[in-house]
């Protein structure tokens, strides 16, 4: 154990440099955030993740953001347990009807100003699950969506670029 800690201390960080904030994401966000919101957020974001019918693939890659290689927290972005502490809802899945109410209630519990990020092809456009009896479809049919991160699932670098764009835009004055 001690040896491991020593190697970790002397070995230097394993964390990789950040990707550039995603351009399309930046463009999508520009103009969406008013001044009051920017002032309030400063340079930190608290995210509440909501699985609204995901296959769990998106969750795996969101998890990866917390590993030491992507280390999301170094940017002041962190995942929180309660929507009441969140600025951002990161929503995955084609919004199963069985999750719709829970999603809306989570949104209601999130204080203003708040943003919704649709994560993954399912959340962005319904994915392969449109047309059935069990799913509503894209998140935007239920909540106003501010940022879309496509991919099935999005790679951690794409997630990081999208979230950084959100941070940059919200922090710019």
């Amino acid at each position: 154990m001690l040896k491991h800690i020593l190697t970790s201390l002397t070995g230097g960080p394993v964390t990789e440099p950040a990707p550039a904030p995603a351009d399309p994401a930046l463009a999508e966000l520009a103009g969406k955030l008013d001044k009051a919101a920017k002032a309030r957020l400063g340079r930190s974001l608290s995210i509440r993740e909501v699985d609204a019918g995901s296959c769990n693939g998106c969750e795996l890659e969101i998890h990866a953001l917390n590993n030491p290689i992507y280390d999301l927290e170094r940017f002041g972005i962190r995942f929180v347990a309660s929507p009441r502490h969140a600025d951002v809802l990161l929503v995955t899945g084609p919004v199963a009807h069985n999750m719709r109410e829970a999603l809306v209630r989570t949104w209601d519990a999130t204080p203003d100003p708040k943003w919704v990020v649709a994560c993954g092809d399912c959340a962005v456009g319904g994915g392969l699950f449109t047309g059935g009896y069990a799913c509503v479809g894209p998140v935007e049919e239920v909540l106003p969506v501010d940022l879309r991160i496509p991919g099935c699932p999005p790679r951690p670098v794409d997630l990081l670029a999208g979230l950084l764009a959100l941070l940059e835009t919200s922090a710019a004055t």
């Binding site: 795996l60 199963a96 069985n98 799913c135």
Partner: peptide, 27 residues
């Protein structure tokens, strides 16, 4: 809660399309 109707969506689909649904049963 995350019932997406996979079995219903597979019905009537060509095998190649249903395979994409199978790949998304549990990521």
């Amino acid at each position: 809660y995350v019932h997406r109707g996979v079995e219903g969506l597979m019905q009537g689909r060509p095998v190649a399309e249903a395979a994409k649904l199978a790949a998304r049963i549990s990521g």
